[in-house]
Design a protein around this nucleic acid. Structure first.
Length: 603
DNA sequence: CAGGTTAGCACC
DNA sequence: AAACGGTGCTAACCTG
């Protein structure tokens, strides 16, 4: 057995590294004498839990002054004892539990279901204390960032530097070192052991910092994380032959368009500098600028030029689009699919400042919605249909409730068309459903939720600034209490530096952007409506059918013969009353692919 | 040259 | 008086 002795925050700490089976007796004594609570972490070959090459290497247990590192990669007794320890310790502390619990599930066969009820996740606590990432003025949520702020900056840098140094020593990179490094490497085991010691210390520091209002969110967020983690484990079935064909078709499209652009003298369509060079040579003046003052070459400009007959601009648009669709979507799906053709998107249930979720790996929140091509890559299970259940005008209904605006509440209660109301307040009572004035009303309704004004509306709709102002005023006239509520909220944000949502969540408000307070509370409350719905669906045993949450929507795969009934049932479970406003969910039943819900957009 | 930043584009 | 909120990913570009 190897023992590292070092100091954290001025205190002596010991990290014991199990090397032979003889060391396991002492390890199990450590577990037995700390059976109430320990922090846990694992080291693995990478982050691709569901790939066939993925392996677990080390598992670490520890408290504030002592850690044990077990080389589970060796299997046998090392693996057995770790499984026993995971199941035996009564409370487990982890930093980003969803990751390690999926690792244990996949590699050791310890089901997540066994462990979630006894987990405390320091990352969840950190987010409830301050949801901002480093770049937005927060302290970050990674173990290193949290250690730097709450424990000791030097230790944080040392730990971070350890793997960097190791990668350098071995002639590798930080991303690749994890699978290569020797299991008993001293830097590696020191790093591994330090992680659990720091996690234990973090829990102590973070617990008292969770605001009193947010305390009730602690359990709730662990449960949301749990349900999301099950969805990730299930994965989404990929139509591999279709995806491969689509990838080829897109590649062909991209190359054909890029060839045309090349013949105009543009070597790379993705380089704004290159594209500008060609446009400039043809006498096109670009007036719009990027934030750093360079000519702005975007889709808006290129489409305008294409519409005026520019073959070059059209080619650039086509090549860029085909390239993005292939590289960002289709090829990523094919690459990440496991041996059973399933894609496991990774869901971060608590991501944004507002607590909105984010989905990475397969960026499922951002697949093109105007064309079914990309979403057709994903399939319901054999014999199943895709079902989507989404909240109707979720954020506007949340706004109606929060602001208490009588007109808005009444409009929703009577089933009236909110976009029409805004349009009529601006343009007069003659506006009808199909009119373009109603579309402008819709843009204004959303812009108001986002904190946008007349300039934004003008740009988005193409109408002039004066008319845009008129419609924005129309909104304020139609729903006067929204403005009152917004300014009260701004004041609160400026006074306290944060606002508190109805669930008790603190959302920091930047003094230079106090107008964003309204959007924050609406977005965050809407997120909690969907998150709470996930918990009710889990309670109702729907989880095995869930595929993904997408903001105001939940996506499922359900047996085809029961699809209509299931969609109705899920909608019923999701629908909820908020004061005088009903947050109504509506189910849609599709065919075998996700894309089937996006075909032949009518109207 | 790895890793960070910028620009652009996909969504709610 | 006005104020566009939140995300992820890629290629190109920049920097230590």
């Amino acid at each position: 057995m190897l023992t590292h002795k070092t100091k954290v925050d001025g205190q002596d700490v010991e990290i014991h590294v199990v090397q032979t089976e003889d060391d396991l007796d002492m390890f199990s004594e450590f577990i037995a004498s700390n059976i109430g609570q320990l922090s846990v972490d694992s080291e693995t070959t990478g982050l691709d839990i569901y790939s066939s090459r993925f392996k677990i290497r080390l598992v670490q247990f520890g408290h504030a002054t002592e850690a044990w590192v077990v080389p589970v990669e060796l299997g046998g007794a090392f693996e057995d004892i770790v499984i026993w320890a995971l199941l035996t310790v009564k409370k487990l502390i982890l930093q980003n539990a969803a990751y390690d619990l999926q690792v244990f599930d996949q590699t050791l066969g310890v089901k997540q279901e066994e462990l979630w009820p006894k987990v405390t996740d320091t990352k969840i606590l950190a987010h409830l204390i301050d949801p901002r990432p480093l770049r937005d003025g927060g302290v970050g949520h990674s173990l290193v960032d949290l250690t730097r702020f709450h424990i000791d900056a030097e230790i944080a840098d040392n730990v971070k530097g350890l793997m960097k140094k190791l990668a350098h020593d071995e002639g590798s990179t930080v991303a690749n070192i994890w699978k290569k490094v020797a299991l008993d490497n001293e830097d590696y085991t020191l790093y591994a052991g330090m992680d659990v010691i720091l996690t234990s210390r973090l829990l102590r520091k973070l617990k008292p910092l969770v605001p009193a209002d947010s305390k009730k969110l602690v359990r709730y967020e662990h449960e949301v994380a749990e349900v999301c983690s099950y969805m990730v484990r299930t994965g989404f079935l990929l139509d591999v032959p279709y995806s491969e064909q689509l990838s080829q078709d897109l590649k062909y499209e991209e190359q054909a368009a890029a060839k045309i652009a090349f013949d105009f003298g543009c070597e790379s369509v993705n380089s704004p500098i290159e594209v500008h060079k060609v446009l400039d040579a043809y006498g096109v003046k670009v007036t719009a600028e990027t934030p750093t003052g360079k000519p702005k070459i975007d889709d808006d400009l290129l489409r305008k030029l294409a519409a005026e007959g520019s073959e070059f601009a059209q080619a650039v648009v086509d090549a860029k689009k085909a390239g993005k669709w292939r590289k960002t979507w289709v090829d990523t799906f094919i690459k990440t699919a496991d041996s059973e053709r399933r894609c496991h998107a990774s869901i971060n249930p608590l991501a944004a400042r507002t607590a909105r979720m984010s989905i990475t790996g397969i960026p499922a929140q951002t697949l093109p919605a105007g064309d079914s091509k990309i979403r057709k890559c994903f399939l319901a299970e054999p014999g199943h249909s895709i079902v989507s259940v989404d909240y109707q005008a979720q954020e506007l209904r949340v706004l109606a409730h929060l602001s208490g605006d009588r007109n808005m509440i009444k409009a929703f209660a009577d089933g009236e068309d909110l976009h029409l109301i805004t349009a009529r307040a601006a343009f007069g009572e003659h506006v009808q459903k199909g009119d373009k004035e109603r579309d402008i009303g819709k843009v204004v309704n959303f812009a108001r939720v986002y904190g946008g004004g007349a300039a934004v509306v003008a740009k988005q709709t193409g109408i002039d600034l004066v008319t845009a102002k008129k419609v924005v005023d129309g909104f304020d006239k139609a729903f006067p209490e929204v403005k009152v509520y917004s300014s009260e909220l701004q004041k609160e944000g400026l006074r306290k530096g944060f606002i508190t949502t109805p669930t008790g969540r603190r959302v920091p408000v930047d003094p230079a952007k106090s107008y964003a307070a309204l959007n924050y509370i609406v977005q965050s409350t809407a997120r909690d409506v969907t998150a709470a719905a996930l918990l009710r669906l889990h309670e109702a045993k729907v989880t095995p059918f869930l595929r993904l949450p997408i903001h105001d929507e939940v996506l499922l795969s359900v047996p085809t013969e029961r699809a209509d009934a299931a969609a109705a049932k899920v909608a019923e479970i999701m629908t909820v009353k908020m004061g005088k406003v009903t947050l109504e969910a509506e189910g849609k039943v599709g065919g075998n692919s996700w894309g089937s819900l996006y075909e032949e957009e009518k109207e």
